[in-house]
Write a protein that binds this DNA or RNA. Structure first.
Length: 333
DNA sequence: GAAATTTGACCTAG
DNA sequence: CTAGGTCAAATTTC
Protein backbone atom coordinates (compact mmCIF):
# COMPACT_ATOMS: atom_id res chain seq x y z
CA UNK A 1 0.00 0.00 0.00
CA UNK A 2 2.55 2.43 0.97
CA UNK A 3 5.26 3.26 -1.33
CA UNK A 4 7.99 2.26 0.94
CA UNK A 5 10.61 0.89 -1.27
CA UNK A 6 11.55 -2.53 -0.19
CA UNK A 7 15.08 -3.53 0.26
CA UNK A 8 14.85 -5.48 -2.85
CA UNK A 9 14.99 -2.26 -4.69
CA UNK A 10 18.22 -1.46 -3.12
CA UNK A 11 19.41 -4.87 -3.88
CA UNK A 12 18.74 -4.06 -7.45
CA UNK A 13 20.89 -1.09 -7.21
CA UNK A 14 23.78 -2.84 -8.72
CA UNK A 15 21.75 -3.83 -11.65
CA UNK A 16 20.54 -0.34 -12.01
CA UNK A 17 24.03 0.96 -11.91
CA UNK A 18 25.09 -1.49 -14.51
CA UNK A 19 22.33 -0.47 -16.76
CA UNK A 20 23.07 3.15 -16.34
CA UNK A 21 26.72 2.69 -16.95
CA UNK A 22 26.02 0.69 -19.99
CA UNK A 23 23.66 3.33 -21.14
CA UNK A 24 26.27 5.93 -20.76
CA UNK A 25 28.77 3.96 -22.69
CA UNK A 26 26.37 3.34 -25.44
CA UNK A 27 25.45 6.95 -25.48
CA UNK A 28 29.05 7.87 -25.86
CA UNK A 29 29.34 5.56 -28.78
CA UNK A 30 26.27 7.04 -30.25
CA UNK A 31 27.72 10.47 -29.93
CA UNK A 32 30.71 9.39 -31.87
CA UNK A 33 28.65 7.73 -34.47
CA UNK A 34 26.52 10.76 -34.88
CA UNK A 35 29.48 12.95 -34.90
CA UNK A 36 31.05 11.02 -37.67
CA UNK A 37 27.80 10.86 -39.38
CA UNK A 38 27.35 14.56 -39.32
CA UNK A 39 30.78 15.35 -40.44
CA UNK A 40 30.66 12.97 -43.31
CA UNK A 41 27.23 13.58 -44.53
CA UNK A 42 26.40 16.69 -46.33
CA UNK A 43 22.83 16.80 -45.28
CA UNK A 44 19.86 14.75 -44.48
CA UNK A 45 19.89 11.20 -43.44
CA UNK A 46 20.20 8.03 -45.24
CA UNK A 47 23.70 7.14 -44.39
CA UNK A 48 24.69 3.76 -43.28
CA UNK A 49 25.71 5.19 -39.98
CA UNK A 50 22.20 5.84 -39.17
CA UNK A 51 21.64 2.21 -38.88
CA UNK A 52 24.30 1.77 -36.28
CA UNK A 53 23.10 4.87 -34.55
CA UNK A 54 19.68 3.43 -34.45
CA UNK A 55 20.98 0.29 -32.93
CA UNK A 56 22.79 2.24 -30.32
CA UNK A 57 19.78 4.25 -29.55
CA UNK A 58 17.80 1.12 -29.09
CA UNK A 59 20.38 -0.27 -26.76
CA UNK A 60 20.58 2.89 -24.82
CA UNK A 61 16.92 3.06 -24.49
CA UNK A 62 16.83 -0.48 -23.44
CA UNK A 63 19.35 0.24 -20.82
CA UNK A 64 17.45 3.10 -19.39
CA UNK A 65 14.30 1.19 -19.73
CA UNK A 66 15.72 -1.67 -17.80
CA UNK A 67 16.90 0.65 -15.15
CA UNK A 68 13.61 2.26 -14.65
CA UNK A 69 11.91 -1.00 -14.92
CA UNK A 70 14.00 -2.42 -12.18
CA UNK A 71 13.17 0.49 -10.03
CA UNK A 72 9.57 0.45 -10.85
CA UNK A 73 9.01 -3.19 -10.81
CA UNK A 74 8.89 -3.50 -7.09
CA UNK A 75 6.85 -0.53 -6.61
CA UNK A 76 4.43 -1.48 -9.21
CA UNK A 77 3.80 -4.76 -7.58
CA UNK A 78 3.00 -3.10 -4.44
CA UNK A 79 0.74 -0.54 -5.75
CA UNK A 80 -0.83 -1.72 -8.84
CA UNK A 81 -3.20 -4.50 -8.95
CA UNK A 82 -1.39 -7.08 -7.06
CA UNK A 83 -0.14 -10.06 -8.82
CA UNK A 84 -1.10 -8.91 -12.20
CA UNK A 85 2.00 -9.80 -13.92
CA UNK A 86 0.48 -10.39 -17.11
CA UNK A 87 1.99 -12.78 -19.38
CA UNK A 88 1.67 -9.89 -21.36
CA UNK A 89 2.75 -9.90 -24.82
CA UNK A 90 0.49 -11.60 -27.09
CA UNK A 91 3.59 -13.02 -28.50
CA UNK A 92 3.45 -15.22 -25.52
CA UNK A 93 6.93 -14.62 -24.41
CA UNK A 94 5.74 -14.90 -20.91
CA UNK A 95 8.61 -13.11 -19.43
CA UNK A 96 7.41 -12.04 -16.11
CA UNK A 97 6.95 -8.37 -16.31
CA UNK A 98 7.35 -7.91 -19.91
CA UNK A 99 3.78 -7.15 -20.16
CA UNK A 100 4.10 -3.79 -18.78
CA UNK A 101 6.22 -2.75 -21.57
CA UNK A 102 8.24 -4.22 -24.23
CA UNK A 103 11.11 -2.02 -23.57
CA UNK A 104 12.50 -4.61 -21.33
CA UNK A 105 13.47 -6.33 -24.45
CA UNK A 106 13.77 -3.23 -26.40
CA UNK A 107 10.89 -4.33 -28.43
CA UNK A 108 10.06 -1.17 -30.03
CA UNK A 109 8.30 -1.23 -33.20
CA UNK A 110 9.87 1.47 -35.11
CA UNK A 111 8.45 0.72 -38.41
CA UNK A 112 9.62 3.84 -39.94
CA UNK A 113 11.05 7.08 -38.96
CA UNK A 114 9.45 9.00 -41.65
CA UNK A 115 6.61 10.49 -39.79
CA UNK A 116 4.05 11.54 -42.15
CA UNK A 117 3.06 15.04 -41.95
CA UNK A 118 -0.42 14.77 -43.02
CA UNK A 119 -1.14 17.90 -44.79
CA UNK A 120 -4.78 18.03 -44.30
CA UNK A 121 -5.35 21.00 -46.35
CA UNK A 122 -8.51 19.42 -47.48
CA UNK A 123 -9.78 19.39 -43.99
CA UNK A 124 -10.39 23.02 -44.26
CA UNK A 125 -13.61 22.03 -45.80
CA UNK A 126 -16.00 21.41 -43.06
CA UNK A 127 -17.54 18.43 -44.61
CA UNK A 128 -14.33 16.78 -45.47
CA UNK A 129 -14.16 14.35 -42.66
CA UNK A 130 -11.57 11.74 -42.45
CA UNK A 131 -9.31 13.36 -44.91
CA UNK A 132 -6.22 12.01 -43.40
CA UNK A 133 -3.28 9.96 -44.28
CA UNK A 134 -3.52 6.55 -42.93
CA UNK A 135 -0.48 5.95 -40.91
CA UNK A 136 1.19 2.92 -42.14
CA UNK A 137 4.74 3.92 -41.76
CA UNK A 138 4.77 6.07 -38.76
CA UNK A 139 6.91 5.26 -35.85
CA UNK A 140 5.02 3.33 -33.27
CA UNK A 141 5.53 1.20 -30.25
CA UNK A 142 3.27 -0.85 -28.15
CA UNK A 143 2.87 -1.59 -24.57
CA UNK A 144 0.76 -4.06 -22.71
CA UNK A 145 -0.48 -3.31 -19.30
CA UNK A 146 -2.77 -4.98 -16.84
CA UNK A 147 -4.71 -1.85 -16.44
CA UNK A 148 -5.11 1.36 -18.21
CA UNK A 149 -2.26 3.49 -17.31
CA UNK A 150 -1.54 7.08 -17.47
CA UNK A 151 1.56 7.90 -19.37
CA UNK A 152 1.68 11.39 -18.14
CA UNK A 153 0.35 13.13 -21.12
CA UNK A 154 -2.91 14.77 -21.70
CA UNK A 155 -4.80 12.65 -24.14
CA UNK A 156 -8.04 13.36 -25.76
CA UNK A 157 -10.14 10.65 -27.16
CA UNK A 158 -11.14 11.24 -30.69
CA UNK A 159 -12.52 7.99 -31.77
CA UNK A 160 -13.44 4.45 -31.05
CA UNK A 161 -13.56 1.60 -33.41
CA UNK A 162 -14.59 -1.96 -33.31
CA UNK A 163 -11.70 -3.95 -34.57
CA UNK A 164 -12.10 -7.06 -36.55
CA UNK A 165 -11.45 -10.20 -34.55
CA UNK A 166 -11.16 -8.20 -31.42
CA UNK A 167 -13.40 -8.55 -28.46
CA UNK A 168 -13.04 -4.99 -27.44
CA UNK A 169 -13.17 -1.75 -29.31
CA UNK A 170 -10.08 0.22 -29.91
CA UNK A 171 -9.93 3.70 -28.55
CA UNK A 172 -8.10 6.44 -30.30
CA UNK A 173 -6.44 9.25 -28.47
CA UNK A 174 -4.53 12.24 -29.58
CA UNK A 175 -2.56 14.68 -27.57
CA UNK A 176 -4.66 17.39 -26.09
CA UNK A 177 -2.13 19.85 -27.36
CA UNK A 178 -2.41 18.74 -30.89
CA UNK A 179 -3.65 22.07 -31.99
CA UNK A 180 -2.28 24.53 -29.54
CA UNK A 181 1.17 23.03 -29.64
CA UNK A 182 1.05 21.01 -32.76
CA UNK A 183 1.78 17.90 -30.84
CA UNK A 184 1.18 14.99 -33.13
CA UNK A 185 1.35 12.22 -30.65
CA UNK A 186 -1.47 9.75 -30.76
CA UNK A 187 -2.15 6.44 -29.22
CA UNK A 188 -4.54 3.57 -29.48
CA UNK A 189 -5.74 1.64 -26.53
CA UNK A 190 -7.35 -1.69 -26.80
CA UNK A 191 -8.11 -4.43 -24.40
CA UNK A 192 -6.67 -7.57 -25.81
CA UNK A 193 -7.35 -9.96 -23.00
CA UNK A 194 -10.24 -10.41 -20.69
CA UNK A 195 -9.43 -12.68 -17.90
CA UNK A 196 -6.35 -11.07 -16.76
CA UNK A 197 -7.18 -7.81 -18.39
CA UNK A 198 -4.51 -6.70 -20.70
CA UNK A 199 -4.60 -3.40 -22.40
CA UNK A 200 -2.46 -2.78 -25.34
CA UNK A 201 -1.48 0.77 -25.99
CA UNK A 202 0.09 1.67 -29.24
CA UNK A 203 1.81 4.98 -29.43
CA UNK A 204 2.36 6.88 -32.59
CA UNK A 205 4.43 9.90 -33.06
CA UNK A 206 6.09 11.78 -30.39
CA UNK A 207 5.07 14.43 -27.98
CA UNK A 208 6.28 17.82 -28.91
CA UNK A 209 4.14 19.54 -26.42
CA UNK A 210 5.51 20.89 -23.25
CA UNK A 211 2.84 19.81 -21.01
CA UNK A 212 5.25 17.95 -18.91
CA UNK A 213 7.29 20.77 -17.65
CA UNK A 214 5.81 20.57 -14.30
CA UNK A 215 6.93 17.10 -13.87
CA UNK A 216 10.36 17.99 -12.83
CA UNK A 217 9.00 20.54 -10.52
CA UNK A 218 6.80 18.09 -8.85
CA UNK A 219 9.52 15.65 -8.59
CA UNK A 220 11.84 18.19 -7.30
CA UNK A 221 9.39 19.02 -4.68
CA UNK A 222 9.57 15.51 -3.62
CA UNK A 223 13.26 15.37 -3.40
CA UNK A 224 13.04 15.78 0.25
CA UNK A 225 12.11 12.22 0.51
CA UNK A 226 15.58 11.08 0.93
CA UNK A 227 14.35 8.09 2.64
CA UNK A 228 12.74 6.83 -0.41
CA UNK A 229 16.19 6.34 -1.53
CA UNK A 230 15.67 5.98 -5.16
CA UNK A 231 14.25 8.35 -7.59
CA UNK A 232 15.17 9.93 -10.74
CA UNK A 233 15.27 13.57 -11.15
CA UNK A 234 15.44 15.42 -14.32
CA UNK A 235 17.36 18.51 -14.09
CA UNK A 236 17.10 21.54 -16.15
CA UNK A 237 16.31 19.80 -19.23
CA UNK A 238 13.18 21.53 -20.10
CA UNK A 239 13.40 20.82 -23.65
CA UNK A 240 10.83 18.61 -25.00
CA UNK A 241 12.98 15.70 -25.11
CA UNK A 242 10.90 12.70 -25.48
CA UNK A 243 12.65 10.74 -22.93
CA UNK A 244 11.59 13.14 -20.32
CA UNK A 245 8.31 13.84 -21.71
CA UNK A 246 7.31 10.50 -20.50
CA UNK A 247 7.82 11.57 -17.00
CA UNK A 248 5.79 14.51 -17.29
CA UNK A 249 2.94 13.13 -15.98
CA UNK A 250 1.83 14.81 -13.74
CA UNK A 251 -0.82 17.09 -14.20
CA UNK A 252 -3.62 15.88 -12.23
CA UNK A 253 -6.06 16.82 -14.84
CA UNK A 254 -4.30 14.50 -17.08
CA UNK A 255 -4.83 11.63 -14.82
CA UNK A 256 -8.38 12.39 -14.20
CA UNK A 257 -8.96 12.91 -17.79
CA UNK A 258 -7.75 9.69 -18.93
CA UNK A 259 -9.27 7.75 -16.18
CA UNK A 260 -12.61 9.12 -16.74
CA UNK A 261 -15.02 6.31 -17.15
CA UNK A 262 -16.34 5.84 -20.55
CA UNK A 263 -19.65 4.24 -20.47
CA UNK A 264 -19.84 3.17 -24.01
CA UNK A 265 -16.54 1.72 -23.77
CA UNK A 266 -17.04 -1.76 -22.58
CA UNK A 267 -15.41 -0.76 -19.39
CA UNK A 268 -12.30 -0.40 -21.27
CA UNK A 269 -11.71 2.78 -19.56
CA UNK A 270 -13.94 2.11 -16.68
CA UNK A 271 -11.62 -0.50 -15.45
CA UNK A 272 -9.23 2.16 -14.66
CA UNK A 273 -11.09 4.52 -12.61
CA UNK A 274 -10.11 6.97 -10.04
CA UNK A 275 -10.16 4.37 -7.40
CA UNK A 276 -7.56 2.60 -9.28
CA UNK A 277 -5.50 5.49 -10.04
CA UNK A 278 -2.74 3.49 -8.63
CA UNK A 279 -2.75 1.52 -11.75
CA UNK A 280 -1.70 4.59 -13.51
CA UNK A 281 1.90 4.63 -14.16
CA UNK A 282 2.71 8.04 -13.34
CA UNK A 283 -0.11 9.48 -11.59
CA UNK A 284 0.58 12.47 -9.63
CA UNK A 285 2.17 11.22 -6.61
CA UNK A 286 3.73 12.93 -3.73
CA UNK A 287 6.29 10.25 -3.73
CA UNK A 288 9.38 10.35 -5.68
CA UNK A 289 8.37 7.02 -6.85
CA UNK A 290 5.88 8.56 -9.05
CA UNK A 291 7.63 6.95 -11.89
CA UNK A 292 6.18 3.70 -12.54
CA UNK A 293 6.37 0.93 -14.86
CA UNK A 294 5.07 2.70 -17.80
CA UNK A 295 7.44 5.52 -17.65
CA UNK A 296 10.18 3.82 -19.39
CA UNK A 297 8.11 2.70 -22.13
CA UNK A 298 6.82 5.95 -23.06
CA UNK A 299 10.05 7.64 -22.54
CA UNK A 300 11.92 4.99 -24.17
CA UNK A 301 9.90 4.82 -27.17
CA UNK A 302 9.59 8.40 -27.66
CA UNK A 303 13.24 8.79 -27.46
CA UNK A 304 13.45 7.31 -30.81
CA UNK A 305 12.06 10.36 -32.17
CA UNK A 306 10.98 10.35 -35.70
CA UNK A 307 11.59 14.00 -35.79
CA UNK A 308 14.89 14.14 -34.13
CA UNK A 309 16.29 11.08 -35.48
CA UNK A 310 17.75 12.40 -38.58
CA UNK A 311 19.42 15.20 -36.91
CA UNK A 312 20.61 15.10 -33.44
CA UNK A 313 19.12 12.16 -31.91
CA UNK A 314 20.31 13.07 -28.57
CA UNK A 315 22.13 16.20 -29.05
CA UNK A 316 21.65 18.43 -26.17
CA UNK A 317 20.20 15.68 -24.21
CA UNK A 318 21.20 15.88 -20.68
CA UNK A 319 19.70 13.40 -18.46
CA UNK A 320 19.62 15.15 -15.26
CA UNK A 321 21.24 13.76 -12.26
CA UNK A 322 20.20 10.36 -11.23
CA UNK A 323 20.04 10.12 -7.58
CA UNK A 324 20.45 6.84 -5.99
CA UNK A 325 20.51 7.27 -2.36
CA UNK A 326 23.24 9.72 -2.07
CA UNK A 327 24.77 9.14 -5.35
CA UNK A 328 24.24 11.13 -8.40
CA UNK A 329 24.79 9.93 -11.82
CA UNK A 330 24.63 12.49 -14.43
CA UNK A 331 24.25 11.53 -17.95
CA UNK A 332 25.25 13.78 -20.64
CA UNK A 333 25.06 13.10 -24.25
C1' DG B 1 -20.16 28.00 -21.41
C1' DA B 2 -16.00 25.53 -22.24
C1' DA B 3 -13.92 21.34 -22.70
C1' DA B 4 -14.13 16.47 -23.28
C1' DT B 5 -16.44 12.44 -25.02
C1' DT B 6 -19.44 9.88 -28.10
C1' DT B 7 -20.56 8.24 -32.41
C1' DG B 8 -21.54 7.88 -37.20
C1' DA B 9 -19.61 9.39 -41.45
C1' DC B 10 -15.80 9.83 -44.23
C1' DC B 11 -11.45 8.48 -46.17
C1' DT B 12 -7.46 5.48 -47.32
C1' DA B 13 -4.49 1.34 -47.58
C1' DG B 14 -4.40 -3.22 -48.60
C1' DC C 1 -14.61 -4.26 -50.71
C1' DT C 2 -13.14 -4.39 -45.98
C1' DA C 3 -10.83 -2.88 -42.02
C1' DG C 4 -8.75 0.62 -39.77
C1' DG C 5 -7.93 5.60 -38.72
C1' DT C 6 -9.73 10.28 -38.39
C1' DC C 7 -13.05 13.97 -38.47
C1' DA C 8 -16.55 16.67 -36.58
C1' DA C 9 -21.40 17.36 -35.06
C1' DA C 10 -23.96 16.09 -31.20
C1' DT C 11 -23.95 15.08 -26.58
C1' DT C 12 -22.22 14.95 -22.00
C1' DT C 13 -19.58 16.57 -18.18
C1' DC C 14 -17.61 19.91 -15.27
Amino acid sequence: MELSWPDSVLSNRERVMEELIQGRELASQLCRVLDDHKSTLVSGCGGGDVGSAEGLVTKILGSFANTIFILNGKEADGEIVSGDQIQGNSSGGGSADSSSWDANHAIIKSEDFHEEISCKSASTFKDRRGSYKRRKTSHSWTRDTPALTDDGHAWRKYGQKVIHNANHPRNYFRCTHKFDQSCQATKHVQQILDDPPVFRTTYYGNHTCRDYLKASELILDCTSHTESSSYIRFGDNKQDHPFFSSFTSVKKEVVVKEEKPQPSDEHLMASHHHNRSSSGDYNVSPHPTAFKSSCPLSGLSSTIDPYDYEGDVMSGLIVGPYYFDDEVLQYEF
